Simulated scan of single mutants.
Amino acid sequence: MLGLKQEDHFASAAGRHFRDADYLRDDGRLPAADHLYGFAAECATKSLLLRFTEVTMDPKPGEDAPSSKPWVENPDPDHHRPLIEFGHVNELVKEVALLAHGRAGASLHAALEGDLRVFRRWHVKFRYYDGGYAQADVVTRRRTAAQNILSLHEQAQLNRKLP
């Protein structure tokens, strides 16, 4: 794994989480499957951001160590946040929308917006819940959205460009 870029790690994790989610879903373990579909979509999105936009994992201004989250300087100079950090999948809808000003950001936002919206109510803290939130129809919608995002990622890698 040495020598791989973070976007490659994200891409690998996306595929692994998706396959594991399918395994769990087929076994009727919907809460765990739902959680992993969210992580699969998140990882594929972060890989796309690193490959096709100005988003980076470099040290943030004034820091020495590489960032633990993808980030970019906020393109809106009037906005109160100088940096945009890309967190969990439920936050990515809003964060990717902030990139929609540039050509690559606008293309990525347009391609991802509908599928990312499916994860608006997904949250990383659900791993601590009893699992009653994971209804079959919601998990199915999230699986489809994650699959679409992974397919977009795969196609973008093959074409070396966004749609």
Rank of each mutant, 00 (worst) to 15 (best):
D137G: 14
F18W: 15
S151Q: 11
E154W: 00
H9A: 13
L2N: 13
R120V: 07
R143D: 09
M1W: 11
T53W: 01
E95V: 08
F126N: 03
E63V: 06
D137E: 14
A104L: 03
E85W: 04
P163I: 14
A106R: 05
Q155Y: 01
K94D: 10
T144E: 12
H109P: 06
K94Y: 14
A156S: 12
L49S: 02
N159P: 10
V124R: 07
L49R: 06
I149P: 02
T144V: 09
I149R: 02
W122R: 05
F10C: 14
K46I: 13
D137I: 09
Y37D: 00
D34M: 09
R19T: 10
E85S: 05
L99W: 00
Q6D: 10
P77L: 13
Q155C: 07
D64V: 04
D64P: 09
R127G: 07
V55P: 04
L108T: 12
Q155E: 03
F39D: 07
P59A: 13
H35Q: 04
K125V: 07
F18D: 07
F86G: 06
A145Q: 00
H101D: 07
R120W: 03
K161Q: 10
H9L: 15
L108N: 12
L48D: 00
L50E: 14
A33V: 04
F119N: 03
L48Y: 03
G62K: 12
